[in-house]
């Protein structure tokens, strides 16, 4: 390699002009990293009829955009996108390449990294730069979230990482003029493409999976009765979340096992976890202590759950839950509920 690779690239995951929010989140984080490293930030857009998207990439702070516009690039297929992205990387030698750890990002990144014979760190939750060594410090959970590992990529470029959605805030779009757009070509013929998308089926999300929801309201033995457990459902509904439970609540038949949180139930990592009438036994904690915000409602001030709580409330849950549910309803009228980083 004649010159040292330069520049941070963010793969802009898009289809028909719809961009996955994680791509913008990565533009925000990419900006910070690029400034620290003293290099440029670029977005990479692959697709068909993508000019609008290209303009938006500049609004999220790109110094330049690399793009390939080709009908074979929509809808997304691993073969066409990896082909295009590998080609761009070979031609322009970025120093760092970031993607969202979405279905598409995780499908694509492994193929690209293998073809470029470089290192790839999956599903990062934290990024930083070792300026002196010009290394991307990539921190990611492993072993079911039980440990955090910081990973470096040695002597290969680009240094590649996928990043979990919603770990970085989405920056505000700025009014910015479009600047350099470097266009590449997809050197693939339709007959070379071995995979065909026959149809897409979009499913309305019914009851999601507990480990895939952002807001969980969980109840424990302290609720006392199945009737009181309904209060948990009520608050979950008001917040647009799901109900969770400790093992005793499940064993008492107040709710089904698919809602149990803990060592022998689900491990969850929601944005908000409200624990009502749950003492905070270690077997419960291991399943939920990675939640971003934990609210504990318990009448015992010494309950261990308070040790992990962001907000603690010493109260009778059966009394407090309905009051809080009303408060939430009142405040959220007309607003969409989505957990935010």
């Amino acid at each position: 390699m004649a010159e040292h690779p330069l520049g941070i690239w963010v793969y802009i995951e898009q289809e028909k002009g719809q961009v996955a929010p994680v791509s913008w989140e990565l533009m925000g984080e990419g900006r910070r990293l690029a400034d620290k490293l003293g290099t440029s930030l670029s977005g990479v857009v692959l697709g068909h009829q993508i000019d609008k998207v290209i303009n938006r990439v500049f609004a999220y702070g790109a110094d330049s955009v690399y793009a390939i516009d080709d009908p074979l690039l929509e809808p997304y297929r691993n073969q066409t996108h990896s082909h295009g992205l590998v080609q761009l990387c070979r031609d322009h030698q970025p120093e760092i390449l970031l993607m969202g750890a979405t279905t598409t990002g995780r499908d694509l990144s492994g193929s690209v990294a293998t073809q470029l014979a470089t290192g790839l760190t999956a599903d990062c939750t934290e990024l930083d730069i070792d300026v002196e060594k010009r290394k991307l410090l990539q921190t990611r959970p492993a072993f079911g979230g039980n440990i955090l590992a910081t990973i470096l990529c040695r002597d290969r470029w680009p240094q590649m990482a996928t990043v979990r959605p919603r770990v970085f805030p989405e920056p505000e779009a700025q009014k910015a003029p479009s600047s350099t757009v470097v266009r590449g070509k997809l050197s693939l013929q339709p007959k070379d493409v071995t995979v065909e998308v026959i149809k897409r089926i979009n499913e309305e999300r019914k009851e999601g999976y507990l480990d895939g929801t952002d807001i969980i309201v969980a109840g424990g033995r302290g609720l006392g009765t199945k009737e009181n457990f309904q209060l948990v459902h009520n608050l979950a509904q008001a917040l647009g979340g799901m109900a969770g439970a400790s093992r005793p609540a499940v064993e008492s038949g107040w709710i089904s096992y698919s809602h149990q949180v803990g060592q022998t139930g689900y491990s969850v990592r929601p944005k908000l976890y409200i624990a009502a009438g749950i003492s905070g036994a270690i077997q419960h904690l291991v399943g939920m202590q990675n939640a971003e915000i934990i609210v504990a409602i318990n009448k015992d001030p010494d309950a261990p759950i308070f040790r992990v709580a962001t907000y603690g409330i010493i109260a009778d849950a059966a009394e407090f839950l309905p009051i809080f549910t009303e408060e939430v309803k009142k405040r959220m009228e007309g607003k969409a509920v989505t957990a935010k980083a």
Binding site: P141, I151, G312
Partner: peptide, 16 residues
Amino acid sequence: PTWVSKTGTPPLREKG
């Protein structure tokens, strides 16, 4: 090429 430079457990939560 990837190299685990350090591992640790998720940090303890801050006092609420």
